[in-house]
């Protein structure tokens, strides 16, 4: 362990940076999704831009995929290491007296989010990749041979939320993401060594952790009820 390039703290800092990056991504994703409620046309335009712009596709997207993989693989590695640090457990322990459930169970909330990401990738990303790079259709049109058919993104989005089971899965996942972020937001600052303004960071983190997932849930339910 001593010869490893990164100390335990170094790994924690990388964990924090990847978490931080994912939170930024979440905000950006939310902004675009909100457009689907406000203006389907704008949503379509931005989706087409994001889906075909080479910088987004070949620079930002790989970084994002790397960050996701890095974050959850490192999360699992750290969790396993931490479990190994105490092979004989306490016969009687009261962790609830000194720490919160969410702070102790980041791996559980994280793994649920990971399972959700699997479904989410299958729902949207795999489909996009198949149409664009598998089928070679970069037009983003409902009917690629008919320029007047309009973009397909908004229609496809709404179609996903017809199924109430899927909506429920989305809602549950976002509740767990919210719990993940309630600890994760402030934790990432602490890991990066920020202790000035700790109380503000905690409060702001809670607002972020509730508001962002809540808006995603709102969008899913909105489309479910609208179709």
């Amino acid at each position: 362990m001593s010869k490893s390039k990164f100390t335990t703290i170094g790994r924690k800092i990388l964990m924090a940076l990847s978490g931080f990056f994912l939170m930024f991504f979440l905000l950006q994703h939310l902004t675009i999704n909100m457009l689907s409620v406000v203006s389907p046309d704008m949503f379509n335009d931005v989706s087409q831009f994001m889906g075909t712009n080479p910088v987004v596709q070949f620079a930002l997207q790989p970084v994002l995929i790397f960050a996701v993989f890095f974050h959850f693989i490192m999360g699992i590695v750290l969790e396993l290491q931490n479990r190994r640090a105490r092979s004989i457990k306490y016969a009687y322990s009261k962790p609830g007296t000194n720490s919160s459930w969410i702070s102790r169970n980041m791996i559980i909330t994280g793994l649920v989010v990971l399972a959700f990401l699997g479904l989410h990738f299958y729902d949207f990303w795999v489909h996009e990749m198949t149409v664009k790079y598998g089928g070679g259709d970069m037009s983003g049109l409902i009917n690629p041979n008919d320029l007047d058919s309009g973009y397909r993104y908004h229609e496809e989005l709404v179609a996903k939320f017809v199924d109430p089971v899927r909506v429920i899965i989305y809602v549950i996942s976002f509740v767990l993401l919210s719990l993940h972020l309630m600890h994760g937001f402030q934790s990432s600052f602490q890991s990066m060594g920020v202790s000035k303004g700790k109380n503000f960071i905690k409060k702001f983190g809670n607002v972020f952790a509730i508001a962002v997932p809540a808006l995603f849930v709102f969008i899913a339910i909105y489309h479910h009820l609208q179709h």
């Binding site: 001593s2 750290l78 919160s100 934790s187």
Partner: peptide, 22 residues
């Protein structure tokens, strides 16, 4: 000191804050 801490096999901090309380 951090290197020695790692050699000794202590786990990674996950900022639960339990230590500060106890």
């Amino acid at each position: 000191m951090v290197n020695q801490m790692d050699i000794e096999g202590f786990g990674n901090c996950t900022n639960t804050g339990a230590c500060e309380v106890e």
